[in-house]
Design a protein around this nucleic acid. Structure first.
Lengths: 114, 114
DNA sequence: ATAACGTATGAACATTTATTCATACGTTCA
DNA sequence: TGAACGTATGAATAAATGTTCATACGTTAT
Protein backbone atom coordinates (compact mmCIF):
# COMPACT_ATOMS: atom_id res chain seq x y z
CA UNK A 1 0.00 0.00 0.00
CA UNK A 2 1.36 3.37 -1.02
CA UNK A 3 2.51 5.77 1.63
CA UNK A 4 -0.05 8.49 1.09
CA UNK A 5 1.61 10.77 3.59
CA UNK A 6 4.47 11.38 1.23
CA UNK A 7 2.70 11.57 -2.09
CA UNK A 8 -0.09 13.47 -3.69
CA UNK A 9 -3.37 12.67 -1.95
CA UNK A 10 -5.48 10.72 -4.43
CA UNK A 11 -8.54 10.36 -2.24
CA UNK A 12 -8.69 14.12 -1.74
CA UNK A 13 -8.09 14.74 -5.43
CA UNK A 14 -10.98 12.49 -6.29
CA UNK A 15 -13.32 14.06 -3.77
CA UNK A 16 -12.60 17.55 -5.05
CA UNK A 17 -12.86 16.64 -8.71
CA UNK A 18 -16.39 15.46 -8.12
CA UNK A 19 -17.49 18.94 -7.09
CA UNK A 20 -15.21 20.96 -9.37
CA UNK A 21 -16.81 23.96 -11.04
CA UNK A 22 -16.34 24.63 -14.72
CA UNK A 23 -13.89 27.26 -15.88
CA UNK A 24 -16.63 29.59 -17.04
CA UNK A 25 -17.96 29.79 -13.49
CA UNK A 26 -14.55 30.60 -12.08
CA UNK A 27 -14.18 33.34 -14.68
CA UNK A 28 -17.55 34.82 -13.81
CA UNK A 29 -16.65 34.77 -10.14
CA UNK A 30 -13.37 36.49 -10.92
CA UNK A 31 -15.19 39.18 -12.90
CA UNK A 32 -17.69 39.73 -10.13
CA UNK A 33 -15.02 40.29 -7.49
CA UNK A 34 -12.90 42.29 -9.89
CA UNK A 35 -15.62 44.91 -9.90
CA UNK A 36 -15.30 45.18 -6.12
CA UNK A 37 -11.51 45.32 -6.19
CA UNK A 38 -10.96 48.98 -7.00
CA UNK A 39 -11.22 51.67 -4.29
CA UNK A 40 -13.22 54.01 -6.52
CA UNK A 41 -15.68 51.31 -7.49
CA UNK A 42 -16.03 50.12 -3.90
CA UNK A 43 -16.87 53.67 -2.91
CA UNK A 44 -19.50 53.83 -5.61
CA UNK A 45 -20.95 50.53 -4.42
CA UNK A 46 -20.96 51.82 -0.85
CA UNK A 47 -22.94 54.86 -1.95
CA UNK A 48 -25.44 52.85 -3.94
CA UNK A 49 -25.98 50.53 -1.00
CA UNK A 50 -27.26 53.60 0.82
CA UNK A 51 -29.31 55.07 -2.01
CA UNK A 52 -29.70 55.36 -5.75
CA UNK A 53 -27.77 58.35 -6.93
CA UNK A 54 -26.88 60.53 -9.91
CA UNK A 55 -23.39 60.68 -11.37
CA UNK A 56 -22.77 64.20 -10.17
CA UNK A 57 -23.57 63.34 -6.54
CA UNK A 58 -21.35 60.28 -6.72
CA UNK A 59 -18.46 62.34 -8.06
CA UNK A 60 -18.94 64.92 -5.34
CA UNK A 61 -19.15 62.42 -2.52
CA UNK A 62 -16.07 60.42 -3.42
CA UNK A 63 -13.96 63.29 -4.70
CA UNK A 64 -13.44 61.91 -8.17
CA UNK A 65 -13.82 63.45 -11.59
CA UNK A 66 -17.08 62.97 -13.42
CA UNK A 67 -15.24 61.21 -16.22
CA UNK A 68 -13.59 58.78 -13.88
CA UNK A 69 -16.89 57.95 -12.22
CA UNK A 70 -18.56 57.43 -15.58
CA UNK A 71 -15.86 55.00 -16.63
CA UNK A 72 -16.26 53.02 -13.44
CA UNK A 73 -20.04 53.05 -13.70
CA UNK A 74 -19.67 51.60 -17.18
CA UNK A 75 -17.71 48.72 -15.65
CA UNK A 76 -20.35 48.19 -12.99
CA UNK A 77 -23.02 48.28 -15.64
CA UNK A 78 -21.32 45.88 -18.03
CA UNK A 79 -20.95 43.42 -15.17
CA UNK A 80 -24.65 43.76 -14.40
CA UNK A 81 -24.23 45.09 -10.89
CA UNK A 82 -26.04 48.34 -11.50
CA UNK A 83 -28.77 49.69 -13.69
CA UNK A 84 -30.02 53.24 -14.26
CA UNK A 85 -32.87 55.44 -15.33
CA UNK A 86 -32.92 58.98 -16.65
CA UNK A 87 -34.44 61.93 -14.90
CA UNK A 88 -34.10 65.01 -17.05
CA UNK A 89 -30.43 65.60 -17.65
CA UNK A 90 -29.45 63.30 -14.86
CA UNK A 91 -28.77 59.59 -14.90
CA UNK A 92 -29.67 57.85 -11.69
CA UNK A 93 -27.79 54.64 -10.92
CA UNK A 94 -28.89 51.92 -8.54
CA UNK A 95 -27.83 48.43 -7.48
CA UNK A 96 -29.57 45.69 -9.43
CA UNK A 97 -29.15 42.95 -6.94
CA UNK A 98 -29.26 42.42 -3.22
CA UNK A 99 -26.25 40.10 -3.40
CA UNK A 100 -24.06 43.09 -4.09
CA UNK A 101 -25.10 44.68 -0.83
CA UNK A 102 -24.54 41.45 1.07
CA UNK A 103 -21.12 40.86 -0.44
CA UNK A 104 -20.13 44.41 0.43
CA UNK A 105 -21.30 44.03 4.00
CA UNK A 106 -19.55 40.69 4.50
CA UNK A 107 -16.34 42.26 3.29
CA UNK A 108 -16.77 45.13 5.69
CA UNK A 109 -17.32 42.71 8.58
CA UNK A 110 -14.19 40.87 7.58
CA UNK A 111 -11.86 43.84 7.50
CA UNK A 112 -13.26 45.22 10.73
CA UNK A 113 -12.83 42.09 12.81
CA UNK A 114 -9.56 41.55 14.65
CA UNK B 1 -36.03 78.01 -2.48
CA UNK B 2 -33.66 76.23 -4.82
CA UNK B 3 -35.02 73.72 -7.27
CA UNK B 4 -33.43 70.59 -5.88
CA UNK B 5 -34.67 68.50 -8.76
CA UNK B 6 -32.21 70.14 -11.08
CA UNK B 7 -29.18 70.50 -8.84
CA UNK B 8 -26.99 68.33 -6.73
CA UNK B 9 -29.00 66.80 -3.89
CA UNK B 10 -27.73 68.38 -0.66
CA UNK B 11 -29.91 66.41 1.73
CA UNK B 12 -28.66 63.13 0.25
CA UNK B 13 -25.08 64.38 0.28
CA UNK B 14 -25.38 65.19 3.95
CA UNK B 15 -26.98 61.88 4.85
CA UNK B 16 -24.25 59.94 3.11
CA UNK B 17 -21.40 61.98 4.50
CA UNK B 18 -22.52 61.09 8.00
CA UNK B 19 -21.89 57.39 7.36
CA UNK B 20 -18.91 57.72 5.03
CA UNK B 21 -16.10 55.28 5.64
CA UNK B 22 -12.50 56.42 5.80
CA UNK B 23 -10.23 55.87 2.82
CA UNK B 24 -8.21 53.21 4.59
CA UNK B 25 -11.31 51.05 4.93
CA UNK B 26 -12.11 51.39 1.26
CA UNK B 27 -8.56 50.40 0.42
CA UNK B 28 -8.73 47.35 2.65
CA UNK B 29 -12.01 46.34 1.05
CA UNK B 30 -10.47 46.76 -2.37
CA UNK B 31 -7.54 44.57 -1.39
CA UNK B 32 -9.82 41.90 0.01
CA UNK B 33 -11.85 41.62 -3.17
CA UNK B 34 -8.76 41.92 -5.31
CA UNK B 35 -7.62 38.60 -3.93
CA UNK B 36 -10.87 37.04 -5.16
CA UNK B 37 -10.66 38.67 -8.57
CA UNK B 38 -8.27 36.31 -10.34
CA UNK B 39 -9.48 32.97 -11.76
CA UNK B 40 -6.48 31.07 -10.42
CA UNK B 41 -6.88 32.51 -6.94
CA UNK B 42 -10.62 31.89 -6.95
CA UNK B 43 -9.92 28.28 -7.83
CA UNK B 44 -7.51 28.01 -4.93
CA UNK B 45 -10.08 29.52 -2.60
CA UNK B 46 -12.68 27.09 -3.90
CA UNK B 47 -10.36 24.19 -3.09
CA UNK B 48 -9.55 25.45 0.38
CA UNK B 49 -13.24 25.90 1.12
CA UNK B 50 -13.49 22.15 0.65
CA UNK B 51 -10.35 21.16 2.52
CA UNK B 52 -6.91 22.23 3.59
CA UNK B 53 -4.45 21.18 0.94
CA UNK B 54 -0.78 21.02 -0.06
CA UNK B 55 0.66 23.05 -2.91
CA UNK B 56 1.19 20.05 -5.12
CA UNK B 57 -2.45 18.94 -4.86
CA UNK B 58 -3.64 22.45 -5.59
CA UNK B 59 -1.46 22.64 -8.70
CA UNK B 60 -2.71 19.29 -9.88
CA UNK B 61 -6.37 20.09 -9.33
CA UNK B 62 -6.41 23.43 -11.10
CA UNK B 63 -3.91 22.59 -13.82
CA UNK B 64 -1.45 25.31 -12.98
CA UNK B 65 2.30 25.25 -12.49
CA UNK B 66 3.65 24.89 -8.99
CA UNK B 67 5.37 28.24 -9.33
CA UNK B 68 2.22 30.00 -10.36
CA UNK B 69 0.29 28.51 -7.45
CA UNK B 70 3.03 29.49 -5.02
CA UNK B 71 2.92 33.08 -6.22
CA UNK B 72 -0.83 33.23 -5.80
CA UNK B 73 -0.66 31.59 -2.38
CA UNK B 74 1.80 34.30 -1.38
CA UNK B 75 -0.82 36.89 -2.31
CA UNK B 76 -3.50 35.06 -0.35
CA UNK B 77 -1.12 34.83 2.60
CA UNK B 78 -0.06 38.46 2.56
CA UNK B 79 -3.70 39.45 2.58
CA UNK B 80 -4.31 37.20 5.57
CA UNK B 81 -6.84 34.96 3.89
CA UNK B 82 -4.86 31.77 4.35
CA UNK B 83 -2.36 30.32 6.74
CA UNK B 84 -0.27 27.15 6.59
CA UNK B 85 1.62 24.51 8.49
CA UNK B 86 4.39 22.20 7.43
CA UNK B 87 4.16 18.45 7.23
CA UNK B 88 7.47 17.01 6.15
CA UNK B 89 8.35 18.45 2.79
CA UNK B 90 4.84 19.62 2.23
CA UNK B 91 3.20 22.89 3.09
CA UNK B 92 -0.46 22.60 3.89
CA UNK B 93 -2.57 25.71 3.31
CA UNK B 94 -5.95 26.44 4.84
CA UNK B 95 -8.45 29.30 5.04
CA UNK B 96 -7.97 31.47 8.09
CA UNK B 97 -11.44 32.88 8.26
CA UNK B 98 -14.99 31.77 7.73
CA UNK B 99 -15.83 35.06 6.01
CA UNK B 100 -13.80 33.94 3.03
CA UNK B 101 -16.00 30.91 2.63
CA UNK B 102 -19.15 32.99 2.97
CA UNK B 103 -18.00 35.62 0.49
CA UNK B 104 -17.14 32.89 -1.99
CA UNK B 105 -20.52 31.26 -1.59
CA UNK B 106 -22.44 34.51 -1.95
CA UNK B 107 -20.58 35.20 -5.17
CA UNK B 108 -21.43 31.77 -6.45
CA UNK B 109 -25.10 32.30 -5.63
CA UNK B 110 -24.98 35.58 -7.48
CA UNK B 111 -23.52 34.29 -10.71
CA UNK B 112 -25.81 31.27 -10.72
CA UNK B 113 -29.06 33.12 -10.31
CA UNK B 114 -30.86 34.24 -13.46
C1' DA C 1 26.88 13.72 2.16
C1' DT C 2 24.17 13.59 -1.66
C1' DA C 3 20.04 13.05 -4.25
C1' DA C 4 15.24 13.65 -4.67
C1' DC C 5 11.26 16.00 -3.61
C1' DG C 6 8.06 19.85 -2.42
C1' DT C 7 7.97 24.61 -2.20
C1' DA C 8 9.41 29.61 -2.61
C1' DT C 9 11.32 33.50 -4.88
C1' DG C 10 13.29 36.93 -8.15
C1' DA C 11 13.57 38.77 -12.75
C1' DA C 12 11.65 39.58 -17.21
C1' DC C 13 8.06 40.12 -20.27
C1' DA C 14 3.45 40.81 -22.08
C1' DT C 15 -1.01 42.23 -20.79
C1' DT C 16 -4.40 44.61 -18.24
C1' DT C 17 -5.83 48.44 -15.71
C1' DA C 18 -6.82 53.23 -13.93
C1' DT C 19 -6.67 57.96 -14.74
C1' DT C 20 -6.66 62.11 -17.34
C1' DC C 21 -7.83 65.01 -21.10
C1' DA C 22 -10.49 66.44 -24.83
C1' DT C 23 -14.64 66.21 -26.81
C1' DA C 24 -19.21 64.49 -28.09
C1' DC C 25 -23.99 63.44 -26.86
C1' DG C 26 -28.61 64.45 -25.08
C1' DT C 27 -31.74 67.25 -22.41
C1' DT C 28 -33.52 71.54 -20.63
C1' DC C 29 -34.25 76.31 -20.58
C1' DA C 30 -33.98 80.99 -22.29
C1' DT D 1 -31.88 78.19 -31.93
C1' DG D 2 -28.29 78.39 -28.90
C1' DA D 3 -26.25 78.07 -24.34
C1' DA D 4 -25.74 75.52 -20.20
C1' DC D 5 -25.74 71.42 -17.85
C1' DG D 6 -25.13 66.42 -16.81
C1' DT D 7 -23.18 62.49 -18.65
C1' DA D 8 -20.51 59.31 -21.86
C1' DT D 9 -16.68 57.96 -24.60
C1' DG D 10 -12.17 57.46 -27.00
C1' DA D 11 -7.24 57.95 -26.95
C1' DA D 12 -3.02 58.22 -24.51
C1' DT D 13 -0.08 57.30 -20.80
C1' DA D 14 1.64 55.42 -16.57
C1' DA D 15 1.28 51.89 -13.33
C1' DA D 16 -0.06 47.38 -11.75
C1' DT D 17 -0.65 42.61 -12.68
C1' DG D 18 -0.08 37.55 -14.17
C1' DT D 19 2.81 34.11 -16.06
C1' DT D 20 7.00 31.84 -17.07
C1' DC D 21 11.64 30.51 -16.34
C1' DA D 22 15.55 29.64 -13.69
C1' DT D 23 17.09 28.74 -9.47
C1' DA D 24 17.33 28.59 -4.42
C1' DC D 25 15.67 26.71 -0.02
C1' DG D 26 14.44 23.15 3.34
C1' DT D 27 13.28 18.41 4.44
C1' DT D 28 13.65 13.47 3.90
C1' DA D 29 15.77 9.22 2.64
C1' DT D 30 19.64 6.68 0.90
Amino acid sequence: MADLENKVHPELIKKVQEQMLVDEEFNKLGNLYYVFSDPVRIKIIFLLVISEMCVYDISTLINATQSNVSHHLAILKSNDLVSFYKKGKQVIYFLKDDHVKRIFQLGLEHIREK
